[in-house]
Design a protein around this nucleic acid. Structure first.
Length: 107
DNA sequence: CTTATGACTATGA
DNA sequence: TTCATAGCCATAA
């Protein structure tokens, strides 16, 4: 399992993110033991099988709380709709309320 | 084999 | 404060 490719490890971590919770790319990279590969986490999401593969890539956002413009599911803003449906709170800035919804492994 | 690219993040102006 | 640039290294061609 952990001996698989880097992408598989990323998928395994994202797969553990509960609904109503979000995680930054750098955090996922850190969880897989490679905090320098934050860019590849997003790259893995692009190649991810999506929810069909058990990888809720819509729960992965920027450290800032912003979403990925131009690469969201149905379009920009569609990802926010999915997150809000899961209970994720947003700020008037149009970003995820990271302080309240960022996933913490210590739980 | 080498080169180019990228759903990021940190830093500096 | 926002905007621009550098560094990161796996994957694809």
């Amino acid at each position: 399992m952990a001996s698989e490719g880097f992408f598989e490890r990323v998928y395994d971590v994202v797969r553990q993110v509960p609904a109503g919770r979000v995680v930054s790319y750098g955090q996922v990279a850190q969880l897989v033991g490679e905090p320098r590969k934050a860019r590849f986490v997003g790259f893995a999401m692009h190649s991810s099988p999506g929810m069909a593969g058990g990888v809720p890539c819509h729960r992965v956002v920027f450290k800032d709380g912003s979403l990925a413009p131009g690469f969201a599911f149905g379009g920009p803003g569609r990802q926010r709709e999915m997150l809000e449906d899961e209970g994720v709170t947003f700020t008037p800035d149009g970003k995820v309320n990271m302080r309240a919804c960022q996933w913490e492994v210590t739980q």
